[in-house]
Amino acid sequence: MSDEFSALQLILDGDAALFAIVKLSLAVSLSAVVLAAVIGMPLGALLGLSRFRGRSLLVVLLNSLMGLPPVVVGLAVYLLLSRSGPLGTFGILFTPTAMVIAQTILIVPIIAAPTRQTVEDLWVEYRDELTAMDVGPAGRMATLLWDARFSLVTALLAGFGRAAAEVGAVMIVGGNIDGFTRTMTTAVALETSKGNLPLALGLGLILVTIVIAINAAAWGTRIWSERQVG
């Protein structure tokens, strides 16, 4: 087989190793998105609805953290989870769990920052109505998050895109172990260093295709459900 088609060939052959890599990439990144959403959305909503001294500073900080370099997050998580680090006893360095933790930290700001903005904007519209209905702070957060759900899909997708595309954090905390912590991106890095550029490019194309497919599915779902709920 010619090199140019080797990645395609792997798909056509239903290559088990390739599918394991794709599965792991998706499992890690989707888990990170779910966790980051569970943490980041309430956090963003809370920040959007609270008024306190130093809030603007926190908003600026949160917005800046959207640009957190993956390798810095990876290094920090590595030092935390290493046997010699404070959380070393759990022994989760070089496991998918460590990768999920690193990616979660990476994308919490990417989800929390737009959530803050969206909730804050929506609050302007909803303030009187919810106050008059005597909705408490937790209820406000829940209501605004739910009513902003279509906009928040975009934040989730941004988080997923970031998680799926990054290589710096998963490489450091996962170790790119064959069959265990090798993801699409670390596999691309590895094949590149092996000089296997066509295969690396092919894997990259598969990754991009998957990300596009997931975005398209999410977008379609959003359009469909917006039509349902208006």
Partner: peptide, 14 residues
């Protein structure tokens, strides 16, 4: 539900 699912998936990997 999604959270529980993803944690289960991770534990089974681990």
């Amino acid at each position: 539900l999604a959270l529980a699912f993803s944690i289960t998936a991770l534990v089974s990997v681990a």
